[in-house]
Design a protein around this nucleic acid. Structure first.
Lengths: 158, 158
DNA sequence: CGTCTTAATGGTAATGGTTGTCAATATCGA
DNA sequence: TCGATATTGACAACCATTACCATTAAGACG
């Protein structure tokens, strides 16, 4: 399949977007890093290094384990990913820009980003009240999401 | 070395309190578990299993590594300790009863429990707004405490 | 478009925190 | 005190993560 720069039916948009994101994070947008970022991006819940490794291998992309770990660490360090640790293996998830809290369901593991815009006063109050400067992107609330809550009522309450 | 049950000039109050806390958590208050809980209790910042092991050994108390791990896990499971993972080794800290957030300083590691009583509306609003039932004791906000903030201004703000 | 310099990569070995195993021991009730 | 049961501790096993270093890709330059 020869690439036709003039008539290419692909949309290089998404790929370029990923590359640009890497660049603005201070990372050269290598092929492997783009693959890793894209793979994380397509997940709704945090994913582990090993899971990504398997997924990429299944897609025919040969990315070494070390590279997956390095990419994830770099992306997390750059603030593009949020880190979830504590259950054996570390998990990563895309972290959007802007103020938000992370609502983590301890049953299904789904993470939701709850906007802190209109509610940011809470963080600001803490800053003034407790002599503490909170990082809006590093606020995490654990609990149970509505779906699991309703599902659990049927399954456990008997 | 030898404990004197009859003439001990200590105040059994604190020890009984620890035992009672273990009992109400559903754990039989064995000597080792009491030692572990007491050791965690006397710390202001999260402590690792290995650190506790060394500390207890230094006090002449022979507590096996496995026991330390098991006690910490059990105490955390029971809700008496809060778990901090993600920096190599897992760390534990006493978790008070009542609604509070954990303010974690990423510089010095100190954890402060910020009461959520008057501010609980925030969690309740999330519950209604985002279809999510938050666990008040599992809310964690990372940031920088005032002390480190002021110390850092001199060293880094150049 | 080739070449060269440098950073990234990947297979593998090593690291180290954590857990499993099981005999020895402490705990608690009778 | 005696016995049933849960706990403990030393050690080995486990496994996620990192270090190492030869190989390879990326990007600059002519």
């Amino acid at each position: 399949m020869g690439p036709d720069p003039t008539t290419a039916p692909r949309e290089p948009r998404a790929d370029e977007d990923v590359a640009e994101r890497l660049r603005s994070a201070g990372l050269s947008p290598t092929q492997r890093r783009r693959r890793v970022l894209e793979a994380v991006e397509h997940r709704q819940r945090p994913v582990s290094a090993h899971e990504l490794y398997v997924e990429l291998a299944g897609q025919g992309h040969r990315v070494g384990m070390s590279t997956v770990y390095r990419a994830l660490s770099a992306l997390a360090e750059a603030g593009l990913l949020h880190v979830f640790a504590g259950d054996g293996e570390t998990r990563y998830r895309l972290c959007a820009a802007g103020r938000h809290y992370h609502l983590v369901c301890r049953r299904c593991g789904t993470v939701r980003e709850y906007p802190a815009d209109d509610d940011g006063a809470w963080l600001d109050r803490i800053a003034a009240d407790a002599d503490f400067q909170p990082d809006p992107r590093k606020a995490e609330v654990q609990g149970v999401c509505g779906t699991c809550l309703r599902a659990g009522q049927n399954g456990t309450a008997g």
